[in-house]
Design a protein around this nucleic acid. Sequence first.
DNA 1: GTCTATAAAAAGATAGAC
DNA 2: GTCTATCTTTTTATAGAC
Lengths: 180, 180
Amino acid sequence: MSRPPRARESVLDAFEQILITRGEKAATMDATARAAAVSKGGLLYHFGSKEALEAGLIERLVALVDADVAEIIAAGDAAIAHFIRTSVMTGAPLDRAMLAVSRLAQGGSAPASAALHEARRRWADAVRPHVRDETALDLVLLASDGLYFNNLLDPAASGPVLRDAAMNRLVSLLEQLAAR
Amino acid sequence: MSRPPRARESVLDAFEQILITRGEKAATMDATARAAAVSKGGLLYHFGSKEALEAGLIERLVALVDADVAEIIAAGDAAIAHFIRTSVMTGAPLDRAMLAVSRLAQGGSAPASAALHEARRRWADAVRPHVRDETALDLVLLASDGLYFNNLLDPAASGPVLRDAAMNRLVSLLEQLAAR
DNA sequence: GTCTATAAAAAGATAGAC
DNA sequence: GTCTATCTTTTTATAGAC
């Protein structure tokens, strides 16, 4: 289990942060290096190209999705609740990686698109045993997608689309309609 | 009712198309001018800056949302079905404007973010009379957001997330659970 | 209204010192 | 491993001819 160099992680953190708060266009190597407090040359030692930098971030997302899927499976009857709630844990590592990689996908990065599709497929497989039919599954997945969508359009928003109480009611409604 | 100059509309079409298919970063004034088959100088006669070009696209979205909200209201009992289905009319003018302006919002454009928030608020108001409570409304809106999200991440996908039959079942489920 | 030419800044990347 | 300096290309924008 190679523990990644700290400078490398700082660079990835900075890149992720800029992607989330200022978008794909602003996430240049120059801006990333500045935010990570390294020189451009230093950044390029760890990531030899922009593509490599993007690949590093995608790798981070894949690892976080792995962990999340394992948690959903372990949650048993609470799978739907867990899945929906982690769709909107604003500021959590998974949430941040999802937003950042979504930005890359929209910039035309094929690896980013592929990683997001794969993640959605794995979430579907983890939730499927807990829903009545494919239509209920579609709705649960779309609700999660919708939460990400709102986050994506305005990550700097005052708070999540749904307040705590509204979120609890949404989860109850989804669990009720999904019950087999 | 000023009919806008044809060249102006071509430029807007080209800008929209590049935003959708290649992302914010690729949607430069140069690329837009080339795609619209005008010179950079020609483009800059119609839109004096990048910001003005973006404002033109946002204006187009606002007009399309106006029309869509009017249709939802006119749809009466079919309001939910109409709302959900127009969320995913891939390739329709409203869908295209939504995707393109979403890209701008993610690039940090405050006017784009504001326009999208306003659109979501107006859709909520149009659908509210047809749902049992705010939780059902949240779910209907999130499902629509989710459809846009999938479209946003992969507009070049082979087809919409949900096939026709799955879409029909989704609409039925939402109508059933929303019924007052 | 539409064009060409060009300026000024910023992008990704390389070379080589330390 | 990390730095500075530099190259090439691209970006937004201006000037001014037609």
